[in-house]
Design a protein around this nucleic acid. Structure first.
Lengths: 150, 150
DNA sequence: GCTATATGGTTACAGATGAAACCAGTTGGA
DNA sequence: TCCAACTGGTTTCATCTGTAACCATATAGC
């Protein structure tokens, strides 16, 4: 007879920890900037590069194209992001930050890093690196299931 | 000017890893046993003890009382769980596994452990312990935000 | 004892999310 | 060059999840 203590079941622990952190992050962004997580992720990725299509953003943020579509629409609506025609493929556009969007990003980014620092306050740089590497391994070994879902 | 690479932002990495693992777990439970994650969690906790109220289950599984209520209703409906009167407080019941529920649990538990083993295949026991401890620390330092949400 | 407040649980409602259907534009092959 | 299959993106629909309102029972203060 097998027994399983939920408290010691790692997928459960992982989920709880992740949900707490996500809740912390989400409520901070929401309260300070009126941004949802998908919107914030788009801004972060757009800020890194020079004009991305929604399809590219989906890949970069691992979000569904529907989620990307909605978040992008909201950002355009708010005047934080602008659509430029994508020469060479008229089905898509290139999304770039407006001046306002860029300014917001400059406000959000430090807050995000601050929050991250708070959550990992007790961690040494070495531990953080270890943790990040472990996440990557987990992600990789759980990835196959993702495709199975179809 | 602050820049932030989303890929290196730990709350993001954590969320991605957790979502992948959850997706793997969820689709396995669903496919093999027709169970959703909240239902499975209830079964696991009920199996550990001897009759729990929904309120206790909510605490043990960190799930909302609404989620617990719905999952419990489904399990009772399916004949996996039974409600016993709670002497001393008639507002609540004690939930216990039926024979069928117990049998299902005996089937699910090994599969769950197997899946966990697959996801953490590359990890040494030492690494697993380290990882679990880190999750606990993260959970603790992100917890304060939970109450902030109200 | 009786009323006010608190607590366990359910129901109703609203927001978030993803799968599937859909539309527009693109590409490869007859 | 024309049509079939494909791809980027949006819309529709079903599902999940949580907040708020609610009902029933319990408990504390008078």
């Amino acid at each position: 007879m097998t027994t399983l203590k939920l408290d010691e079941f790692l997928p459960y622990r992982l989920s709880i920890a992740s949900n707490r952190v996500s809740a912390a992050v989400a409520s901070t962004y929401q309260a300070l900037f009126g941004l949802k997580i998908p919107e914030w992720r788009l801004i972060a990725v757009i800020a890194e590069g020079e004009g991305a299509t929604q399809q590219a953003l989906g890949v970069a943020t691992r979000m569904d194209k529907v989620t990307v579509s909605r978040a992008a629409a909201t950002l355009v609506e708010r005047g934080l992001v602008e659509r430029r025609p994508n020469l060479g493929d008229q089905r898509s556009h290139l999304l770039i930050l407006t001046a306002t969007g860029r300014a917001l990003y400059e406000d959000v980014a430090p807050k995000a890093l601050e929050l991250e620092a708070q959550v990992f306050a007790g961690f040494s740089p070495q531990e953080i690196a270890t943790f990040a590497a472990m996440l990557e391994r987990i992600e990789a070994s759980a990835a196959p299931f993702d495709s199975e879902r179809g």
